[in-house]
Design a protein around this nucleic acid. Sequence first.
RNA 1: GUGAGCGUAGCUCAGGGGUAGAGCAUCGGUCUGUGGAUCCGAGGGUCGUGGGUUCAAAUCCCAUCGCUCACCCCA
Length: 524
Amino acid sequence: MTHRFQAVKGTRDILPPESALWNRVEQTARRVFATYNFQEIRLPILEQRYLFERSLGYESDIVSKQMFTLEDRESSELWVWRDLVSDWKLRIDDPLALDQFEYALKRLLQCLEVELQREEKILRPEILQSARDALLHNAEKLRELREKGITPQGLEVLIETIQLEAATVRGEDLGLRPEATASVVRAYIQHGLHTRPGLTKLYYIGPMFRRERPQKGRYRQFYQVGAEVLGSSDHPALDAEVIEMLLVFLDRCGLREHTLYVNSIGCSDCRPKYVERLRSELQKVKDHLGADSRRRIETNPLRVLDSKLPEEQPIIEKLPSILDHLCDACRDHFQKFQQELKDRSLAYEINKRLVRGLDYYIRTTFEVTAPGLGAQNAICGGGRYDGLVELLGGPPTKGMGFALGTDRLLLALRQVEESGGKDQLDVFMVWLGASALRAARMLARRLREQGISTELLYEETKLKKALGLADKSSARYAVLIGEDELAQNKFTLRDMRSGQQRALSESELLQELAASAGASAAEE
RNA sequence: GUGAGCGUAGCUCAGGGGUAGAGCAUCGGUCUGUGGAUCCGAGGGUCGUGGGUUCAAAUCCCAUCGCUCACCCCA
């Protein structure tokens, strides 16, 4: 039986020549960010799941249903007992087996206690606790029932209940990162980066994972380029400079049409007051809202502002604006931030309905959109997150950053064809005869040492066919080595575009090719 | 999690009950030291998978899986 493998849902391969585009975008990011004194941080793709739960919020969609999680079971014997309990095959007529089950249950409870006493909680403590309480209760019940002697049916039900409860203690204590800000902050705290002088300016490039239905510009493994500034400053100039850097980067990538939207969503002082105000206003008009928006009145009133339903737009327009409810400090910050943008000649639009989905944002939020992306027109989002470091157990620290979806940026660039035809290969080497092969091998090595990309045929091939292969590989030049060349101690350099050939000595050849290879390398 | 559309060669797609097709691509020949063109030829498929109807199913019916797009949510 044959099985046809394919990339798992929501992941894809990035093949050449498209992969060259990716490299170019990432190189551009590295260059631009370096000029703003940002340095790269390389982060693990796996983190403790709890990190994301703390930073993004338990109730956020990302954590509650979009995170890829996996068990790390090495760390504890907890899993041994859990598996024994939850996988135990019902053999209620066998008292010995029942003894074993009870023993495993007892050990599982002990492990749970240990886990609950741990300083660093890796598993969600409330899940552990409720499992512990339920199991404790049922273990007691089980013992009583066994002492009294119970109907097999009753015992069966109880054991199944226990097994289900045990299964809730899952080793999903690791998560594939759905975004990288939490990882950056974790690393900042873990390595004491706050003790380094000045602000910490970091950027990262890499894949993120979210388990959601794929659609245009949205994958389960997607790629982000992001930057974060951590430290003691929350100066509006910093926010503006980060955005300037982002826009310079987009410009250098060749993205011409895009729009920067900015907003302020206040701080822990003024936002809750506004949210309450908003909620009460929404209550008044809730009969005119759709089911989703009605639900959000309780769960997250800010998100109602995000609704795209046409019939809700007039209602939303009339709702109170967060910008009218900022405290003095936040209003001042937002004003100065806008002035900083103007002083940098950065065009922007205020979008008072721009509320970021993640819990940790404060004050400045922003988003860049580009046309041609289907329903997902945002390519980049970011903002200020002053409380996050503290929330994750670090010292009071200000933070600001953005994350940019590379998949969507490239979709907006639409330049795959343009860059696809570029010469990838400098030299296709053609040899005829065994002694020519020896010369070809040595020459190929020297060319490659000079950074000149060279293809050398492995098998002897007729000249006509070899040139055909050179053509198909879209090589810039062919180098021919045969008996004539060996006799003259020269090589034939053939320009594959013009078809012109010249006989050159090795040093002449190297010189000639170094010039053209150098030119194409500079473009990269 | 919800809804819609689409699954036939590597790619783009025809065929809508009676022998599995085209163009492009690949490989070989034409062509034994000169590529791109022409011409000739070849390989490549359990028509997504499973079941049903039928003498006969790529085709009709059912189920299932996959892909795509949209909703939700977000970058």
